[in-house]
Amino acid sequence: MRLDKTEISLGLIALACVLFGFVSPGWLIFLLTIALAKALVVQGVVMQMRSGLVSFGQGLFYCIGGYTVGMGGQFFGIHDAIAALSLGMFVAIVVAMLLGLLLTRYREIFFAMLSLAFSMILFGILVKSQELGSTDGFNVHDWTLFGWAPEAGAGSQHTVFTMTVVSGLIVAVLIHRYTKAGIGVICEAVRENEVRVEYLGLSPRWLLYGNYVAAAAVSALGGGLTALATGHVDPEMAYWTTSGEFVFIALLGGLGHVAAPFIAAIVFSFVRTYAIEFVPHTWQMILGFTLLAVIIFLPKGLWSLVSREKTGERA
């Protein structure tokens, strides 16, 4: 397995993050953990955007990942973090394999609306489930890592951070390869001209299906890590505005590079933290105007700022 330049840089950055984790203050660690975990969910949104589909319901898998981790610890005695996260991804994959059968028949706004509807269905179910704390959700049980129990508070926060960085690195490398592999490129081809893909003897639907399921797994991992980090899950995770936020971050970063969603999510989290503190009732307004500005001035997202500098004049 040979690593290319991007992969080596990703690895170095991840290493730097882990080391940074030892010296940085707790609030910053927490903020970064949440941002990176969200970025994983956004990676799922971006994977679908590459294939031309905008999911306004990625919160579904974020929520599934989170709730599975929470329920695994609370009800089924699964306390190992890795096992819980994997279970979350597994459940998401199963759900996606079912929903994907229907969803891959739709494009454009129909896909957006139907994916939204599915996440709202989960929201509706969770809100009415007393055992799961209905609208309040419930707390995630203390967890262990290979039998070792990090001390509550700072210790566990630091462990989740490291886990998130490592997961982020693994996912980033995989997605980086995926994007250049047959399925990645041909999913983009589907976006660009579905008729031609069909006439090359390929099934756009099955390509989108595979992509949808893969994206669901990645997003569920993000949801699971968020649950571990915050120690709490609630139905809001599946509400459509949560998914809207993921779409926002995806557009902010752009589709240019695997690193873009991470950067965008971190920018997003910082701006949000300060905006909510200093200008409480204008946070969404800032988002709205930013989104319009991105669409008008940076249609390829924040990443285009970075790549423009590097490659000079490539519009």
């Binding site: 905008v54 306004f56 706004i109 809207g244 988002l287 709205g288 669409i295």
Partner: peptide
């Protein structure tokens, strides 16, 4: 523009109006 992009543009509008109303 694309229909889906119009969805996103009106989503931005929604965010702006929601806070506008709070103000």
């Amino acid at each position: 523009r694309d229909e889906i992009l119009m969805v996103i543009i009106t989503y931005a509008l929604l965010l702006i109006l929601e806070d506008g109303m709070k103000i």
